[in-house]
Structures are given as structure tokens and as C-alpha cells.
Write a protein that binds this DNA or RNA. Structure first.
Lengths: 243, 243
DNA sequence: GGTGTAGTCGTACATCGTAAGGCCGTCAAC
DNA sequence: GTTGACGGCCTTACGATGTACGACTACACC
């Protein structure tokens, strides 16, 4: 007795919260059963009485993050009546993005889930509700979810995000100058764009790019909602599976 | 002599080719140094004379896949003069998608790369070339790359792709009926859309959705290229870092 | 008391990436 | 031919990981 026993009992909630905190602090690779147990002042095998295995732990972690998103978006996005669908959805997605910026590891684990949790289903149901209230047919709303993809949850897969922005910047610049002739367009773009956005760290203002893409997509959806004919060549469904 | 020595010597190319074949055959999880060595009739540590470590192996694997994409797109997409930029880019991206459909594990490893290989840089340079020839400013072309994201390379992160389409279909349907009241919009959508696309496996015709999204994005880029004012509220750069 | 039951722990195993050093065949120089 | 260096391959071993299995502990209820 004495100092002992001050440890609160384990629970699924405590395990998941500790897992999220550990990933926030030390990164996703640090989220191992042993280190998680250590944080909880417990042995690794004790965790298995609250989560079935590591996959289930990750499922739970996703659920926690998604619930955080839902809580944030409930504040931001009201019922969104009329053709306010665009503003409502935009606000919701930007709120989701804010949450994910606090958990930069979350997209990577989101993407590895094969089953969708009730929290995610509920979130998507809410998005569908916004679209329906805005006048979307179910068919178009369904396409809209595909178009938005992971952006719905507030992230895009940033391909090739450098580990260390400062160093990588210099390296890439040097490399490109060396390989100048081989990649004329990239070199040209960097010369022009990097100059213009001087002051932004690295190359791209991620927030601006996220909103630029989001607005472009919302514009496209609005055009299809009101029945504009798209300018492009016909979509051309290559393999016609519906016989 | 005799039956021995029929094994050709190892080389970086042979190692990478075997790695791709192994991932194609048994999935990404099966791609371990030991199993790869086994396929090559060699011990695991021998691989380290041709690749520095597993990360370098994955880098090489990515390079092989991207080169396959480049080869495929070189066939499909010619120089693309004039305002044919849209058709050229569309064809290129759909060719890339075809390659990635043969290597379903590739997106997952693509996303984990932190350094970009020359092959990838060259590919993006080509895409930039198409945009420039189509009349894009470097600034807008830069945004375009962000908007397209991983679609440029022919894939989108399909969130929650079920392992087994047939079984998951029944399960989800049953679950949704049970939770009917909680997710009215999703249930409504499934009732309508699933009925309409009967005959397509599972729920969504991935090829159609990919092209729908791609065309929506290309439409939006074209509108911005020719200087249409977007209909949306101003993008509203939230944090103005360029002082 | 006895007896279950749920939570925790200790041990052990298979598998992973890979560090360190040894073996062996090839080939240039003599 | 002999020798010595070297590059490619292998053996062994280490630490980390997820987790199966069984034992221990604490408390509820009879």
C-alpha cells in the first residue's frame, strides 16, 4: 500500500486515449503495445483485455479521432438550409482538417482500415445530409463522396512530404539545378513560384492549396447539381459492365 | 557443376523485379527480406549487397512501378499540342491508373516514400509540360498538381476498401438495416443507388467514379485557365503568412 | 470460508530488419 | 602455376515486435 494502487484501472477508453497521446507525442512508429503499456504503467499483455489485438487498437484510435472530428464539425456546421450546402460542407471539411493537423499520423492509419466504424458512417451520413438538403440527388451525392475522397475527412495524401522542410528545400534546389536540362518545366515552375511565395516555408502553402482544391471541387459539384453540361469530352465509361 | 550454378547472379534489377513480382503475387505484407531472398534462391543478407536496406528496396520498387507508368503513358499521350491539354492529361492519367490496377499494393508504398525518385520527378515534369503547352501559367499549373494529387499517378486512396466484396456487401446491408434510423441518408442512398447499378460488383463502379472525379477536376482547371471567375465564396487564405 | 470471474502479469515463441564477420570463387600480377 | 586481393554470398546473432498460454491476484457472491 502507501504509494501503490494510485493507478486507476485500465479501460478501453484509457487505452485508446493513451494511444492517441503516444502517437501525437512520438509518432506512429512509437505506438507499439509495449510502449503503450509502459505509458499506462502496465504490462503489454494487459492491454489485450481491452482491445482484441493491435488492429483493433488502431480501429479504436481511428474512432477516437473521428469522434473528435464530429465534435468539431458539429460546432462549425449547422443544419445548413437551402443552397448553403456549399458553405456548410466547406466549413465542415475545414474543421475536420484542423483536427487532423493536430494528429498528423491519423491519415496513415485511416487509410489502412478495412472496416468502417460507426463513427465514420455517422460522419458520412451527415455529409450526405448536407448534400441532400442542398438539392443533390442520391446519385450525384454518391459521386460527390467519391470525388471528395479523403478530403471529406479533412486530408489529402500529400505525396512525398519531406521529413525536414528546411534541409530538403536546399537539397532539392541544388539537385534540380544540377539536373537542370532534364526537367525544364519543374525548374521553371520552381523559379517562378518559389520566388512569388517567398516567406512561406518550403514550397507550398498547404492551407491555401487545400482550399483551392476544395473550392474547385465544390464548384464542379455545384455545376453538375444545377445541370450544367460539363465542357469535357464525354466521360466514356470504358468497360460497360451493366450489360 | 551438374545442376548447380544454374542460378544467375544477383543484381539490383533482379532483386527489384522479384520484389515487384512477390508483392503482386502475395501482397505487400509478404514482401520481407527473407521471403524475397527465398524467391531468388539466396539468403536474406545477400540482398544487402544490392540494396542498402528495406527502405531503399521500397524506393527501388517504386521506381520500377513509376517507370512502368512512364512507359505506358509515353505510348498513350503524345506531345498534346494546343488546347488538347485536357485530352492528353486525361489519357495519361488513365494509363497510369491501368498500371496501378496491376499493382494494387503500389499506392500504399508510394505514399510512404519521403524522397522523390528521378523517375517520379520526370513524370511530373511531363505533366507540367502538358499543362504549360495547354496555356497554364506556372502558378496555376502548380495548383493543378495539388488539386490532382495522387490522381496524377493514377490512383485515389479508396478509403475503407473492403477485403472481400461479396461478403462485405451482405454484412453492410444487414448492418445498415439494423441501424436504419441512425443513418437515414446513407440507407436512402444505398437503396436508390445500389438498385440502379445492380450488376456492378459491390457498390461502386470504381472506373466510372475515377473518371467522373477526374473530369470534374479537369473542368474546374479549364475554367480557371480561361479566367472564369469561380462561383464560390472567396478562397479566404486563413493565415496570411506572406506578411 | 469457498468459489468463480475479470483483470493483470511473466514467460515464451515466431517473425522481422539487419550488424558483424567468415567463406569462397574469380582474376590480375608475378 | 602461385599468390593475394576483392566482391558476392552466407552464417550467426541481436534486438524489436505482436501475441499465445498459463499463472497469479483481487474481489463478488454464496
Amino acid at each position: 500500500m502507501g504509494t501503490a494502487q494510485r493507478r486507476p484501472p485500465l479501460s478501453r477508453e484509457r487505452v485508446l486515449a493513451a494511444a492517441v497521446a503516444l502517437a501525437d507525442r512520438d509518432g506512429l512508429d512509437a505506438l507499439t503495445m509495449r510502449r503503450l503499456a509502459q505509458d499506462l504503467e502496465v504490462e503489454a499483455m494487459s492491454l489485450y483485455h481491452h482491445v482484441a489485438n493491435k488492429e483493433a487498437l488502431l480501429d479504436g484510435v481511428v474512432e477516437v479521432v473521428v469522434e473528435e472530428i464530429v465534435a468539431a464539425t458539429d460546432v462549425a456546421g449547422g443544419p445548413a438550409t437551402g443552397d448553403d450546402w456549399r458553405a456548410g460542407l466547406r466549413a465542415r471539411i475545414l474543421s475536420a482538417r484542423e483536427v487532423l493537423l493536430r494528429h498528423p499520423w491519423a491519415p496513415r492509419v485511416l487509410e489502412t482500415r478495412t472496416t468502417l466504424s460507426p463513427a465514420v458512417i455517422g460522419y458520412y451520413d451527415g455529409v450526405l445530409g448536407i448534400l441532400r438538403a442542398g438539392g443533390f440527388s442520391y446519385d450525384l451525392a454518391h459521386h460527390a463522396l467519391h470525388v471528395l475522397g479523403s478530403r471529406t475527412l479533412g486530408f489529402v495524401q500529400e505525396l512525398f512530404e519531406p521529413d525536414d522542410p528546411a534541409g530538403a528545400d536546399a537539397d532539392v534546389t541544388a539537385m534540380l539545378e544540377q539536373l537542370g536540362g532534364r526537367f525544364p518545366h519543374i525548374v521553371g515552375m520552381m523559379a517562378e513560384v518559389a520566388h512569388a511565395t517567398e516567406g512561406t516555408l518550403g514550397w507550398c502553402d498547404d492551407q491555401f492549396e487545400f482550399e483551392f482544391a476544395l473550392d474547385l471541387i465544390l464548384d464542379g459539384l455545384e455545376a453538375r447539381r444545377v445541370g450544367d453540361r460539363p465542357r469535357s469530352d464525354a466521360p466514356g465509361n470504358l468497360d460497360d459492365r451493366t450489360t
